[in-house]
């Protein structure tokens, strides 16, 4: 494996047949490789999320990040797009599933695809990665500190976010959960409850909670960054994808 890649903006067909922007990073490999759909956090389709997308390509995976705010704010800067999407109520769950499904199809259409695809999401994207894995046929999914999977989000205001824990019975693939032990959203009790539900549903999953880490410990540009948890988390991701995407 080399770390050579090609990274570019492409168009994918998402929910409702809409063409939306996405960032695609492809290893320059001829052998078939697995794919990863990166679901960006609520602050948007930003430089750091594109960097994460390239990291997967550098490790030998096709990776794509759909711009979930494309419809509300085509061509806008990520922060303006996120503000616009928030003011309009955020990304509806059914649209998220359609857009991630389009990104999965796009990866599988590439000549170097092994036809195995995972999702990974951070923060609000963690909840959305779980939702996608319960709504689409996937090969693996990673939920990085997704809040409001089980607990209801605050009421009032334009944002429409509902719990999705009842979908656990439909989880289509192995799930890796990475959480901060000091996070309150999701709090350890909510993580434990999700663990219990997945166990009862006899799903394949593994959860890891890191001491000394709170929310967003992977975010290298934020005060919440915790290098030890992030490094260990990345190692777990490579191991997980190695088992379910690379094989």
């Amino acid at each position: 494996m080399t770390d050579s890649m090609r990274a570019e903006t492409v168009s994918v067909i998402g929910a409702g047949g809409d063409a939306i922007e996405a960032y695609l990073a492809q290893p320059l490999e001829t052998a078939p490789v697995g794919g990863v759909v990166v679901i960006h956090h609520m602050p948007g389709y930003d430089e750091k999320t594109k960097e994460i997308t390239r990291t997967f390509a550098a490790h030998g995976y096709l990776a794509i990040c759909p711009n979930l705010y494309w419809r509300e704010a085509p061509g806008a800067s990520p922060d303006d797009a996120a503000a616009t999407a928030r003011a309009q109520g955020g990304v509806p769950d059914d649209r998220l599933v359609g857009d991630v499904g389009g990104a999965v199809r796009h990866l599988k259409s590439l000549g170097s695809s092994k036809q195995k695809v995972a999702t990974i999401g951070y923060c609000s994207g963690g909840r959305q990665s779980f939702l996608a894995a319960c709504s689409l046929e996937l090969d693996a999914a990673v939920d990085c500190y997704g809040a409001f999977v089980l607990a209801p989000a605050p009421e009032g205001g334009p944002m429409k976010v509902t719990p999705v824990g009842h979908l656990a019975k439909d989880l289509s693939c192995p799930l890796l959960g990475l959480f901060g032990a000091e996070d309150q959203f999701p709090a350890p009790a909510e993580v434990a409850e999700l663990e219990k539900i997945l166990t009862e549903e006899e799903k394949t999953f593994e959860f890891h909670s890191f001491e000394g880490a709170g929310h967003a410990f992977f975010a290298t540009n934020r005060p919440s960054y915790r290098p030890e948890a992030a490094n260990e988390g990345w190692a777990l991701i490579w191991d997980f994808f190695g088992r379910y995407l690379a094989g």
């Binding site: 503000a83 616009t84 923060c123 934020r222």
Partner: peptide, 23 residues
């Protein structure tokens, strides 16, 4: 979450004109 402030969370205010676009 803020975009720029050095804090995990901030009180954020957006003054907008959606009719003129996101910027």
């Amino acid at each position: 979450h803020p975009v720029h402030a050095r804090a995990e969370h901030t009180l954020n205010i957006d003054l907008l004109n959606p009719g003129r676009g996101p910027s």
